[in-house]
Every structure is written in structure tokens, then in C-alpha cells.
Design a protein around this nucleic acid. Structure first.
Length: 430
RNA sequence: UGGGGGGUCGCCAAGCUGGUAAGGCACCUGACUGUUACUCAGGUCACGCGCAGGUUCGAAUCCUGCCCCCCCAGCCA
């Protein structure tokens, strides 16, 4: 019976076949311990010379790391085995032998590993991160789908800047046109929300900023919900529910992976909501009290975000940023136009911003004025202005960066490990 | 783009007040029936130290220029 390692607990005493790769081998002359991985997990397979005979035992003497193998054996519970179960080998087929696998069980530098990312992802830690990434994405989809949001994806080729602030990647679009890779599905989302009510888009996003930090990728995945008739409070409520639900799901389903990563789970367990809601005004005061140099009107840098979030053990909302530092479509606070109905969610433990969003401008005149003030070409936004001409309503939403969430939940120190093949300013290979 | 750190064998890493390239891993041979990055014994392994010049009797080490990477900041999710 062909089995996957993750299902092995139910097969005790049975003869099973595992198809995978040799992760590591330890040998004591008359007994081999073969750690085999099959994509679903790792399992120690025990091969005793006495039990299998020379003709099966000897070829395994020199079996190399990452050689493809098919192992037949009997499942047995054993407290000495890493996974609680091991396999008493009765048969071994070598599918293909690996030669000089470069990633040995010893230490390696980042650059070396990144050049071999296609092989590095076979390592237990990297697998754990990618499994958690999968769980995060699955939980995100479930969250919105179960609330009857409609997935309506925004285009990746776009005709112009959505916000005009950040740098975009231009691509040749047939002979005569230049398209830009999307930096946000935001504007299309708003149109979709006016059609479908509650929507979200979920796809890759591209930013050509020359950022060289551990919090930036040039290609990353973002989920962006948008809701018609939503206020800034609704946006915060939705974001809070999403984050609580994603963290709970990973804690529930990815215990093993969190253990491999040695994540302090008690810190994640505290993420239950409600999240503190701090106004930008109060945040500025807090920073000043803590001795940081900060003037009202500026945007928070990474050290500021860390200083704010370390006051709390849950993610925190900071809302009411100055209108001047936010995108043109952010709605001004009624009666206090210098402040916008915008909100960021900062993850705890110094992980910084994972969500940014707010309520959008719903007034046609104001939006036209804003587009002019930002020196954006109005003709490119006519379709967007139509949303204010034909049944405009209050609405809002946010964007959540998947890799930033995964990085935080995994407790790792760099975004580049939170995606299978990271794209950074100096990294396109493999 | 600024500031800091770094490029020495397939990998990790010492040497860097100039004197002729440690050590570990991997690999090969052998021993070991409960290993957990197994252990132990032996063996192979850099005419060269990111690249190009220069100083010197002598350069991985000092000087000049260039290339690449990492970290921090800015920008943002």
C-alpha cells in the first residue's frame, strides 16, 4: 500500500510503501537509519542487516543525500523516532542516485542558499514556512468566502499608476504600448465593490522601489478586500477578524511546523482581539514620550513602528494619518480634513506594518481636486471617477501583505524565506 | 541613493601590526545493531585568497581603482 508520511499514524503494523528522497543517513555497520522525506513529512526508516540480508543492506551503505528512493516496510510506533513512528524496512528501491548534493546538513551562508533556492526548499525549516504560507492563504480565502465576499481579481497589466507615488515596472505591451505591472488592485476593487458589494482580490503585486530591507520584495502577494457602504470602523473590524482568524488557523493546524521553527506560540496565542486602536495623534505623543524624534505630519519609519508595537502584545491599529502622506483616494476626516480616514495594522514583536487601508473618497468634486493636486492625469482616471458619478456610496477596504504576515507568524527575520522564489532588487535567480 | 560589514578549497571558517595559506564539514577507506548535524581511526583536498594594477627581496595581509553580496535607513504591504 502506497502511503504518505503525514498519514502514517493510522497505519501502525501495516506494510506500506513510501516514495521519496533520502534526507539523511546514519549508519552503525549492521543497522542503517535512513531519514526519508516524501513531501508530506520526514520519517526514520530502520534497516537491519540481519533482517534484510546483505544484498539489500550493502547498496544502502553509500546511498547519498537526496537520492530518490522507494521504501517498503512495516510501520511501528517508537518513542525514539523523531516523528513517533518509524519504518522497519523490508525493501528498498533506488530510483535515482543524487551526486554531491550541495546543501549538506552543515551551516551555509544566505547567498549560497539563495542561489540554490530550488533545492533549499527541501529543507525542513523551509518546508515548514511554505506549509504555513499555504495555511495562511487558505485561511484568508476561507475567511472572506465564508463571509460571502466575491473573489474578483484585478488586472496585473495596468495602463497607469494607481497612486502615482511608487515606482512601477514597465513592460512592453505589443508594438506600441507600455503597460505597468500592478502595484495594487485597489481602484479596480472599488469598481467591483460597486457591482458585487463585498469583494476581494488576491494576487501578485509589483513594486519597483529600490528597497533593500528585510521587509521588502519587488514581487509579493497581497489580499485586498473592498466593501460598499463600509466605514473606517467597519474596515478595522474586518481586518481584525481576518488576522485573528488566520493566526488561530495556523495555531490549530500547523503545530508541527511552528515547532520546527521554534516559534514562541504563546505570543501568537495572545492574538485574539480586540486590537488596540491608537490615533495617529496619540501615536506621535507616545513616540515623543519614548524619546524618539518625531514631528506631527511625518510617516512612521521602521524604528517608530517597532516602538509603538512593543507597547502591546497584540497587533495594533494606528488610524487617522495626515492626509498629506496618504494616497489621493483616502477620505478626509469630516471636520478635520488634514487627517484621513486611514488605518495601518502593525504586527507585534517589531514586525511592522502588515495591513494598510481606509475609507475612500466618495465625493466626485473632491476626488477630481485630489487627482489634480497629485499631478495625476485625469483622463486616465475617468473610469474611476465614474464610480462617483453613478451611485457613489461610502466604502473602504485594505490590503494585507501575505509574506509579511507569514514572516511574523513564523517568527523568521527575513521576508525572503516567506515565498518560494523571492524577487528582490539584486535577486532574480533561480 | 546614503551609512556600516564582508568576499580565503564544493560548504563553513582562522589568518589581515607583510615572511611563503590553520581547523571543521563534505568526499574516500575501515570499525560499530538504536542512531538523532551518530561516533571513532586513517586518507585525499587551495602554485592560490572577488577582479585589475601598484609598493616590496617577499602581499590573502599595505596602497589605488572596479565588481559582487549582506545589514541598517528611506519608500511601502
Amino acid at each position: 500500500m502506497i502511503a504518505y508520511i503525514e498519514d502514517i499514524a493510522g497505519s501502525e503494523g501495516q506494510l506500506v510503501t513510501i516514495r521519496g528522497w533520502l534526507h539523511n543517513r546514519r549508519s552503525s555497520g549492521k543497522i542503517h537509519f535512513l531519514t526519508v522525506r516524501d513531501g508530506s513529512g520526514f520519517m526514520q526508516c530502520v534497516m537491519s542487516k540481519q533482517a534484510v540480508g546483505d544484498e539489500l543492506f550493502t547498496p544502502a551503505d553509500h546511498l547519498t543525500q537526496e537520492s530518490a528512493v522507494i521504501v517498503h516496510g512495516t510501520v511501528r510506533a517508537d518513542s525514539r523516532a523523531p516523528g513517533g513512528y518509524e519504518l522497519d524496512v523490508t525493501g528498498l528501491e533506488i530510483v535515482s542516485e543524487a551526486q554531491n548534493y550541495p546543501i549538506t546538513p552543515k551551516e551555509h551562508g544566505v547567498d549560497f542558499l539563495m542561489d540554490r533556492r530550488h533545492l533549499w526548499i527541501r529543507a525542513p525549516r523551509q518546508q515548514a514556512i511554505l506549509r504555513i504560507r499555504h495555511e495562511v492563504i487558505d485561511a484568508v480565502r476561507d475567511y472572506f468566502n465564508s463571509r460571502r465576499f466575491i473573489l474578483a481579481d484585478a488586472p496585473i497589466f495596468t495602463p497607469a499608476a494607481c497612486e502615482g507615488t511608487t515606482t512601477l515596472f514597465p513592460v512592453q505591451y505589443f508594438e506600441d504600448n507600455i503597460a505597468f505591472l500592478t502595484q495594487s488592485g485597489q481602484l479596480y476593487n472599488e469598481a467591483n465593490a460597486m457591482a458585487l458589494g463585498r469583494v476581494y482580490c488576491f494576487g501578485p503585486t509589483f513594486r519597483a522601489e529600490k528597497s533593500k530591507t528585510r521587509r521588502h520584495l519587488t514581487e509579493f502577494w497581497m489580499v485586498e478586500p473592498e466593501v460598499a457602504y463600509a466605514t473606517i470602523d467597519d474596515v478595522m473590524h474586518l481586518a481584525e477578524g481576518l488576522v485573528v482568524s488566520v493566526v488561530a488557523r495556523v495555531l490549530e493546524k500547523r503545530q508541527q511546523e511552528l515547532k520546527i521553527l521554534e516559534r514562541d506560540q504563546s505570543k501568537l496565542a495572545r492574538v485574539q482581539g480586540p486590537f488596540p486602536r491608537i490615533s495617529y495623534d496619540d501615536a506621535v505623543e507616545t513616540l515623543k514620550k519614548k524619546g524618539l524624534v518625531f514631528e506631527w505630519g511625518g510617516d512612521f519609519g521602521a524604528p517608530d513602528e517597532t516602538a509603538l508595537s512593543e507597547e502591546h502584545d497584540q497587533p495594533i491599529f494606528v488610524h487617522g494619518f495626515p492626509s498629506a502622506i496618504k494616497a489621493f483616494y483616502m477620505k478626509p476626516h469630516p471636520g478635520r480634513p488634514e487627517v484621513s480616514l486611514s488605518v495601518d495594522l502593525l504586527a507585534p514583536e517589531g514586525y511592522g506594518e502588515i495591513i494598510g487601508g481606509g475609507q475612500r473618497v466618495d465625493d466626485l468634486e473632491l476626488l477630481v481636486q485630489r487627482i489634480k493636486a497629485h499631478d495625476l492625469p485625469q483622463e486616465a482616471f475617468e473610469w474611476y471617477l465614474d464610480l462617483r458619478r453613478f451611485g457613489s456610496v461610502p466604502h473602504g477596504g485594505f490590503g494585507m501583505g501575505i509574506e509579511r504576515v507569514v514572516t511574523w507568524i513564523c517568527g523568521i527575520d527575513h521576508l525572503r524565506e516567506a515565498i518560494p522564489y523571492p524577487r528582490m532588487i539584486y535577486r532574480m535567480y533561480p
